[in-house]
Write a protein that binds this DNA or RNA. Sequence first.
RNA 1: GGCGGCAUAGCCAAGCGGUAAGGCAGGGGCCUGCAAAGCCUUUAUUCCCCAGUUCGAAUCUGGGUGCCGCCUCCA
Length: 488
Amino acid sequence: MTLTVFNSLTDRQEPFTPIEPGKIRMYCCGITVYDYCHIGHGRTCLVWDVVRRYLRWRGYEVQYVQNFTDIDDKILKRAQSEGVSMEEISERFIQAYFEDMERLGVAKADAYPRATHTLDGMQRLVSELESKGYAYPAGGDVYYSVRKFPEYGKLSGRKLEDLKAGASGRVEETDPDTDKKRDPFDFALWKAAKPGETSYPSRWGEGRPGWHIECSAMVKEELGETIDIHVGGGDLMFPHHENEIAQSEAATGKPLARYWLHNGMVKVGGEKMAKSLGNFITIRDLLEQRDPMIVRLFILQTHYRKPVDFTEEGLDGARNGWNTLKEGLLFQENYGKQLGWEDNPPKQSDEQIKQRFADVVDDDFNFAGGLAILFELAKELRKEGNLLLHQGRAEASSEELAVKWHTLAELADVFGLKPEVKETGNLQGDGKADTSLSDEQVQALIEQRVAARKEKNFAEADRIRDELQAQGIKLIDQPGGNTRWYRE
RNA sequence: GGCGGCAUAGCCAAGCGGUAAGGCAGGGGCCUGCAAAGCCUUUAUUCCCCAGUUCGAAUCUGGGUGCCGCCUCCA
């Protein structure tokens, strides 16, 4: 089967072919760095991280670029209210972004261009648009003339007439600069600086770039005139991506991207989560409560184009599901020694299963379908592990188990799902709660309980178990009187 | 008002014309001093409703209903 993707540009699912065989140039619209990232940003980054991982796994060389918007009204506003520079705000939240993404296991992009580092490129592009007649200056601003670009609206499926019908009465009233525009739908490529604002010199005077031009400039500088895949949140399709197309394609006369992919929004309580609605959850707040891998699994369970509703119930389900996968992934950690894998680390994976996985995921990145295969493998390994634990031997051969484990680990890696291997405790918990008891204290109590059980003093044994349970320590009694434990 | 998307078990979710994946939760059994974990087993004659096409439809067509997103900054 061949990889097919849903292209927003054609509104159809179509076979994917890169411009240059084996190579993919991919651009993701990143974030405006004026605050901590919320889980909507998290979903976007996670989804495209996995797409990128999958494409690599499928054998493509992927060049992946994601931008930071560090020139923006909201950054300026925050800088002014805190009495610091825009740079200071940007820098702070770029660092926070990297911290959050590292915790979520999002791989680093190949480049992170910033608006402040792309000023020349943006100005060149604006000049080019001006000289080609697509842009006009107006009192220190420069606007893009939407009517000069006949294909305007081709991405979002809008016609200028429809926009007019919807926006009539709103655009004129809300935009005090409207009088400078020749058409209400023209948008700013360059904005004249207002007094006290951070600004940059240009041939149109002191000012700063408009929002959309940065991506047009960055794509061109980092990846070229036509790229393979341009991705971003569905809410960016209009006007941001539409305007990017208008700018880039008018300037180069070539398509900006062959495939446009958009991810669905995150909802909370059935409503879209957005800054403007005030119902957002930041990634760092969420990660106080939940293992990053739970969040990853939760998000990957829903197809990337569908909306996903964040609920406690949903996250609880993902937590339990993650425990199952983790059990499988830790198979080598927990049983490899017993199976004598040390000098012969398993390297072989099951080609048939990998083919099944690829067939499913090739269908517009059907991650949920792919996860079903991971669960299949993880459950088999868990079952065999349980046999090893209780009976000292498994049903399958060491080689078979090695292949299964290796296949699972390889496919889980495509999804960025990795258990944290902890030094403490002899089984893995979900890393959520922390207890006041040290490992030594737990161990001591367990030894007391083992002794009590030997004397058939079950009241005392149960008392100790309850005490540990209250601290979030779970016990597993094994045949032969051994007890394993983990933190819940 | 315009444009677009989605409706599948208690919850989440795949499925894209051939007779309902998977996860979570639940029921029953095994194991256990009792648990926990694990194992086995079970849970939608049916896919929002109504028509139609077809030998055959959750899947295609038409018409309803409901929910959501975009049209303004937004991942």
